[in-house]
Simulated scan of single mutants.
Amino acid sequence: MLRSQARLTAIGAYVPEKRLTNADLESMVETSDEWIVQRTGMRERRIAGENEFTSHLCIEAVQSMIDEYGVHVDDVDHVIVATTTPDYAFPSVACQVQNAFGIQAAGALDLNATCAGFTYGLHMANGLISSGLHRKILVIGGETLSKVTDYRDRSTCILFGDGAGAALVEYDPALPSFLGAVTGSDGSGGQHVYRTGLSSVMDDVPLSGEGRMVQNGREVYKWAVRMVPGEIETLLERAALNKQDVDWFVPHSANLRMIESICEKAQMPFEQTLYSVVHYGNTSSASIPLALYDAVKEKRLREGDKVVLFGFGGGLTYCGLALTWGA
């Protein structure tokens, strides 16, 4: 593996003001707070306003990072936004962020790796900086999943929320953050979680949803619980770490019960696991940075801590990273 020359130096986050609680959902579909908490661990989600879109959330997340860390982004030379819910097919959310902050000489692209998007974005940033191609990259994960959620479908509408998180990755050969990475995919499972676009057929199978999120939660759950523990072993081996060295495990916050199962099978202590699912729901590419941001604010996550991030989701795709926390 190419020796890292990159450090994660700052993090920010933003969630919309509107809350959608389990009690609210009880009045919308046939469900209950007890049923939702028992099966998902979720208690509320944040919901973007009618005229609030992914770009707005991403811009606010970057601004929170600037305000809290005193960093500046005018010299950023690349912007990567991980999202499955861009404002438009094009222009990209990354270009909207670039414009909002007046960044003059930056490449900009949107990345779609669903719930693994933020970890893929960090992985790409590390590679671009460590290779010498770039020196300062803005990585953002942002979603407005409420806009593509079918609130008539009680199996999915209880799950998803909106939010964004941003991180700054900079050239720093003396104190690099990135220790190891593992990536992979299984396209044969694509039909288990999807949103239709130009095509409504996959592998000769007609798809439903009409542009809304469709998920076979049972199949995604089984895949994640089967796959993640083994890939964590591979990741730790590549990073030359033992499980005892890991201070915090940060998986994608899809479902608290799924996280508990992954921790049990991977032998990762649940009490050393960071998640955002309880108060934000499943925010896809935003779930990991939201968990990190809250842990920093609560002074649980500190500089020098060893952290394992693991994103996984639609595609099916995944990306795990081992880091020394540098922000």
Results as ranks from 00 to 15, higher is better:
residue 10 A to P: 09
residue 12 G to F: 01
residue 12 G to H: 03
residue 13 A to W: 14
residue 19 R to N: 15
residue 23 A to E: 15
residue 23 A to F: 13
residue 26 E to C: 02
residue 32 S to N: 00
residue 35 W to H: 11
residue 41 G to E: 01
residue 46 R to A: 14
residue 51 N to W: 03
residue 52 E to P: 06
residue 55 S to N: 05
residue 57 L to A: 11
residue 67 D to H: 10
residue 72 H to Y: 05
residue 77 D to H: 14
residue 81 V to E: 04
residue 82 A to E: 08
residue 82 A to I: 08
residue 86 P to T: 04
residue 90 F to N: 08
residue 99 N to R: 06
residue 101 F to K: 01
residue 104 Q to N: 00
residue 111 L to C: 10
residue 113 A to M: 09
residue 117 G to V: 06
residue 120 Y to Q: 05
residue 122 L to N: 07
residue 124 M to W: 04
residue 128 L to P: 09
residue 130 S to D: 11
residue 134 H to P: 05
residue 138 L to E: 05
residue 142 G to Y: 12
residue 146 S to W: 09
residue 148 V to I: 15
residue 150 D to F: 14
residue 150 D to M: 14
residue 162 D to M: 00
residue 167 A to H: 06
residue 169 V to Y: 11
residue 179 L to G: 05
residue 186 D to H: 04
residue 189 G to Y: 02
residue 194 Y to A: 07
residue 195 R to H: 09
residue 199 S to H: 15
residue 206 P to S: 07
residue 208 S to C: 09
residue 208 S to N: 07
residue 209 G to M: 10
residue 209 G to Y: 10
residue 214 V to H: 00
residue 218 R to E: 14
residue 225 V to H: 10
residue 230 G to A: 02
residue 233 E to C: 08
residue 235 L to H: 02
residue 247 D to V: 01
residue 249 F to Y: 06
residue 252 H to P: 13
residue 252 H to K: 13
residue 260 E to W: 03
residue 267 Q to R: 15
residue 272 Q to C: 15
residue 274 L to K: 12
residue 282 N to E: 03
residue 283 T to Y: 06
residue 284 S to F: 13
residue 286 A to L: 11
residue 288 I to C: 07
residue 294 D to G: 09
residue 297 K to M: 13
residue 305 D to W: 05
residue 305 D to T: 05
residue 308 V to L: 12
residue 313 G to A: 08
residue 318 Y to R: 00
residue 323 L to Q: 13
residue 326 G to P: 00
